[in-house]
Computed example of a mutant assay.
Amino acid sequence: MTAVSAMPTVSATSARPNAALVLIEFQREWLDPEHGRLHHLVEDRDLLDTAVHGAAAALAAARTHGVPVIHVPLVLSPGAPELASWTPAVLGLRAAIPKAGTWIQGSPGVEFAEAFRPAPDEPVVRGRAGASAFAGSSDLDLILRRLAVTDLYLAGFATHVCVESTLREAHDRGYTAHVVHDACAAFTRAQQDHVREHVIHHFGAETDAATFAATLDAALGTR
């Protein structure tokens, strides 16, 4: 048994109804072969395909049970001045994103992928500027508090960057956070496994899409 398979998972009996599914960057930048620049940087295509199918299953389960679905895109102004903040963007993604020209408002890449477009009643986070879904002037925390959500189920891209960053900050803000690992993808399997083996258990727990659905069945029944 590997360290990954030994990671803690969430049992169906532990579910609480004050949960939300948080979908991070289900945008064409990741999921569109024609317009997605990041799509072509994913080395493990099976990992990405698994994440898309897992996320679709988790999304269907959440909608079936009336569990809040919160969409977290990244949308920046031309030149990404939001990332400069009060200091110049010199290193890391703050410097790389403006150079790459990704995530720019009005570009095809920032549009939601067709299968993950928000329903009319599903909140879309605004003001995010950074790796974490809580970064910048993001209104994610306000949305969660308004909906009385305490348990977050995280899905999205990339596992080792934005999902991990959100997991860490959710923990520090007092949320109970779970990573739906088969609804997330990194660029490589090694990156994905590192997060699962060495990161998640410090800040929350991992589960999978099937267990997430079973969790909702046990806690809420069929609506």
Rank of each mutant, 00 (worst) to 15 (best):
V4H: 11
S5R: 14
M7D: 12
P8E: 06
T9S: 11
T9L: 12
T9Y: 10
V10L: 13
S11I: 13
S11H: 14
T13P: 12
N18Q: 12
L21V: 01
L21M: 05
L23D: 05
F26V: 09
R28H: 11
E29K: 07
L31C: 05
D32W: 05
P33K: 02
H35N: 15
L38P: 09
H39G: 08
H39A: 09
L41C: 12
V42P: 02
R45Q: 11
R45C: 08
D46P: 11
L47Q: 09
G54S: 06
A58R: 03
A58I: 01
L59Y: 05
G66D: 07
G66Y: 04
V69P: 01
V69F: 04
I70A: 07
H71M: 05
V72G: 02
P73I: 06
P78Y: 07
P78H: 08
G79K: 06
P81C: 02
L83T: 03
S85W: 15
T87F: 15
V90S: 11
V90W: 14
L91P: 12
L91K: 15
G92N: 00
R94P: 09
A95Y: 08
A96S: 13
A96P: 08
I97P: 03
P98G: 03
W103E: 09
W103Q: 08
W103P: 04
S107W: 08
V110G: 02
A113S: 10
E114Q: 14
E114V: 13
A115S: 13
F116N: 03
R117D: 09
R117A: 13
P118E: 07
P123W: 06
V125D: 02
V125S: 06
R126V: 15
G130H: 06
A131Y: 14
S132K: 06
S132G: 04
S132Y: 06
A133P: 05
F134Y: 08
G136F: 02
G136K: 00
G136S: 07
S138Q: 03
D139M: 09
D139Y: 05
L140M: 01
L144A: 02
R146M: 13
R146T: 15
V149A: 01
V149T: 02
T150N: 12
D151G: 04
L152I: 03
F157H: 01
A158S: 14
H160Y: 08
C162S: 07
T166I: 00
R168G: 00
E169N: 09
T176E: 13
V180C: 03
V180M: 02
H181I: 14
C184F: 03
C184D: 01
A185P: 02
F187D: 13
T188C: 04
A190E: 15
Q191T: 10
Q191R: 12
Q192N: 05
V195L: 07
V195I: 08
R196M: 15
V199K: 02
I200K: 01
H202N: 11
G204K: 00
G204P: 00
E206M: 10
D208I: 03
A209W: 04
A209D: 07
A209R: 06
A210P: 08
A210V: 11
F212D: 01
A214W: 10
L216I: 09
D217A: 13
D217Y: 11
A219M: 10
G221Q: 07
R223Y: 14
